[in-house]
Design a protein around this nucleic acid. Structure first.
Lengths: 261, 261
DNA sequence: CCATCTTTGTGCACGCGTTCACAAAGACAT
DNA sequence: ATGTCTTTGTGAACGCGTGCACAAAGATGG
């Protein structure tokens, strides 16, 4: 994914491992909550608990950013909030464009977690003419024809794709051609992009499938553990017979994330 | 698998690495698409390309499931679809309950990718009395008071939390108490659960923040290149120079303040 | 039946990420 | 100042995941 890293070991700020970057938003969230409660300092142990990670991992993560803690005391909350925000690039304004204003796209447009972290929804795009001009989250939806102009006029470098799978690649190509270099993809499709463009994907059904795998494993172990089971696991067993739905018609098509309206 | 005797016989789910499990849904999606096009067999190279992964990785992943391929030919699409579906537990019906029917919850209820993979939305729960009884995606919303009963009546073992952050832990506790053992959490909060309960989280803003980090890095490199070279060569240089980055920029002002609910 | 060609399955090595464990650093009390 | 106590920052070991490279396995053609 990430384009070739440098041969630079860990000089200054740029040696930050990908795994650490992925956790910085977690720390930032926990720190922001502490900041609101006017907590002045926090130890690695406390903050790690709040962020749901190991304290040693947290300290090592922070060590990549620099030495921002005080031994015997902990970390200054406000200072750390600022440092992490700066490192993540959240001290600047990031205009984003959302393409595909179905259920999911609309939910994303309304999502408060974006605006509060410097992400500003600059434009909403949908192929359906019936939606054009209709306001969603206070922003009028623009037709797909205006995609390129919306990107350029707003200086957008981050695009969000919430279209059906079939349209995703085409939308992606147009976004990239218009100058977008980072894409958050909610469509269940693999996107092909040129070098220099980052893609992150969120597939809602994949997470559920992973849960189902572990759930099945748990159920199997329980069943194997004790043949005669108390009422406790009755629910698990009932899954089988609850609804023997096999959505006939064979394999599901790869399904659009949203309904177009 | 000639050396399979001293180690775990990878016959069952026991030996499958977590990273492999996370990719199985990807393979399944690609295979399903091939199946719809009535493609009989597929090579690891082709399938890997369709799934967006390395072919060696794919072969190794499949080797954990067993030897389902034919050397010189490839993999039988239908057979592999079945094997992966079975491994993931998708051959059975998974009733799920969605708690928090806001924009996101409603989008999830309407999401086609769930039903097509054996996940059936058994109940929708929301604390707002104004929503009670109102149908969303054809399913009437139930009040929070009915959470436990909805879980038990439907034999639900997978719960989806799409509530505001402040309500998530409480909802989680109630779900777990009612018998749910797997939770997909969309609320921006760390959930505490007892042993034996799996939690996977999806935080929409985290993904954007990670993109912003890389975007900032790219912008910094371009800026560094621009100062050193004529603007015309900037694009060409972008990919090459990844090492040196100007440390900081001026005070940009705005700092992300609060976490939404 | 043998030769050749294709593609799988995997041994191996390497690098990243995680965790442990502890010395160094600073706060604080006396 | 000096000692004690707390907590950071990190060296080092370990384990997992990834990718290479190739032998084995089977198909295919002569």
């Amino acid at each position: 994914m990430a384009t070739g890293r440098t041969h630079r070991p860990a000089t200054r700020s740029r040696g930050i491992p990908e795994a650490t970057v992925a956790r910085l938003p977690l720390y930032l969230r926990a720190l922001t909550a502490l900041s609101e409660r006017s907590v002045p300092t926090v130890s690695s142990e406390e903050l790690a608990a709040a962020a749901g990670v190991n304290s040693a991992k947290l300290r090592k993560d922070f060590s990549y950013l620099g030495s921002y803690g005080t031994r015997g005391v902990g970390y200054d909350v406000e200072y750390l909030v600022y440092q992490i925000s700066r490192e993540l690039g959240l001290t600047q304004d990031w205009p984003v464009v959302i393409v595909g204003i179905g259920n999911l796209g609309a939910a994303l447009a309304n999502y408060g977690g974006f605006a509060s972290r410097g992400f500003r929804v600059a434009a909403l795009i949908d192929a359906d003419p019936a939606l054009t001009g209709k306001p969603v989250a206070g922003i009028p939806v623009q037709h797909s024809d205006d995609l390129e102009q919306a990107v350029r006029d707003n200086g957008v470098s981050i695009g969000v794709i919430a279209t059906p799978a079939g349209a995703a690649q085409q939308v992606c190509d147009r976004l990239v051609a218009a100058g977008v270099t980072s894409i958050l993809n909610f469509a269940p499709t693999v996107l092909n992009v040129p070098d220099g463009v980052d893609v992150r994907k969120v597939d809602l059904s994949i997470e559920l499938q992973i849960l189902a795998f572990h759930e099945q494993r748990k159920a199997g172990e329980e069943a194997a553990a004790d043949t005669a089971l108390p009422a406790a696991a009755a629910a698990a067993v009932r899954k089988q017979s609850a609804d023997q739905v096999s959505a006939d018609q064979g394999p599901d098509g790869d399904v659009p994330a949203v309904m177009p309206a």
